[in-house]
Computed example of a mutant assay.
Amino acid sequence: MSTTTARPGLRAYEDSLRLPPAEIVAGLRETLGAKLVAYLGGVRETRAVREWAEGTRTPSAETMQRLRTAFYVMALLREREAASTVSSWFQGMNPELGDTAPARVLLEQDLATGGLAVLAAARSFVAFG
């Protein structure tokens, strides 16, 4: 996921739209870990995440949209940062999000507003560190 393009984030965006649900979940799990993906997916068990990644179970449409948004943000950050940094970024207090963790914003807020705010915070982090 550490590719450089002329337009940062374009590959991340395209992948977030085109990849099948199982690959989205597998990519998130690889970088963020199963527990954080379960949190983002609104489930209590990592078994659901494993089943989503295997394609034996499918998240709801709403959950899948949230996971695609999280994947887009994750892939954008992975263009410049290590997996451990990206995972910490999702979980840590973010001053651009009112000191709320991006994962919490994605889970608790409407994607139309929360998703855009998390994406803007990620772009800022990539641009300014």
Score class of each variant (00 low, 15 high):
residue 55 G to F: 13
residue 26 A to I: 05
residue 10 L to P: 00
residue 15 D to Q: 14
residue 56 T to L: 12
residue 47 R to E: 14
residue 36 L to E: 02
residue 40 L to Y: 04
residue 52 W to K: 04
residue 34 A to S: 15
residue 53 A to L: 08
residue 43 V to S: 07
residue 51 E to I: 00
residue 46 T to H: 06
residue 10 L to R: 10
residue 12 A to I: 02
residue 40 L to F: 03
residue 35 K to Q: 13
residue 28 L to Y: 08
residue 33 G to K: 05
residue 40 L to T: 04
residue 56 T to Q: 11
residue 23 E to S: 12
residue 48 A to T: 12
residue 55 G to T: 13
residue 36 L to A: 05
residue 34 A to K: 08
residue 20 P to F: 11
residue 16 S to M: 06
residue 40 L to M: 08
residue 12 A to C: 07
residue 16 S to L: 04
residue 48 A to M: 11
residue 9 G to P: 01
residue 30 E to R: 14
residue 27 G to H: 03
residue 52 W to L: 07
residue 48 A to K: 07
residue 30 E to C: 09
residue 55 G to D: 09
residue 35 K to I: 05
residue 18 R to A: 10
residue 50 R to Q: 15
residue 13 Y to T: 06
residue 51 E to K: 13
residue 46 T to D: 05
residue 47 R to F: 08
residue 24 I to P: 01
residue 22 A to C: 11
residue 53 A to P: 05
residue 20 P to T: 09
residue 27 G to Y: 06
residue 50 R to S: 13
residue 15 D to S: 11
residue 51 E to W: 11
residue 22 A to V: 11
residue 45 E to P: 00
residue 22 A to F: 10
residue 21 P to K: 06
residue 49 V to M: 07
residue 23 E to A: 15
residue 18 R to D: 08
residue 36 L to I: 07
residue 38 A to P: 01
residue 56 T to R: 15
residue 43 V to H: 05
residue 48 A to P: 01
residue 27 G to K: 01
residue 43 V to W: 00
residue 29 R to T: 15
residue 43 V to P: 04
residue 51 E to H: 13
residue 33 G to A: 08
residue 51 E to Y: 13
residue 15 D to I: 03
residue 48 A to R: 07
residue 22 A to N: 10
residue 52 W to P: 00
residue 22 A to H: 10
residue 46 T to R: 07
residue 35 K to T: 11
residue 43 V to A: 04
residue 20 P to M: 10
residue 39 Y to G: 02
residue 56 T to H: 12
residue 50 R to A: 13
residue 17 L to G: 10
residue 21 P to D: 12
residue 34 A to D: 14
residue 26 A to Q: 13
residue 53 A to F: 06
residue 9 G to C: 07
residue 10 L to K: 07
residue 48 A to F: 11
residue 18 R to L: 15
residue 21 P to W: 12
residue 14 E to F: 12
residue 55 G to K: 08
residue 37 V to A: 02
residue 42 G to L: 05
residue 55 G to V: 14
residue 54 E to V: 10
residue 34 A to T: 09
residue 47 R to T: 15
residue 22 A to M: 10
residue 37 V to D: 01
residue 26 A to K: 11
residue 41 G to C: 06
residue 26 A to D: 14
residue 37 V to C: 04
residue 9 G to S: 03
residue 35 K to A: 14
residue 14 E to D: 14
residue 56 T to D: 11
residue 11 R to F: 04
residue 17 L to W: 14
residue 55 G to R: 08
residue 44 R to F: 08
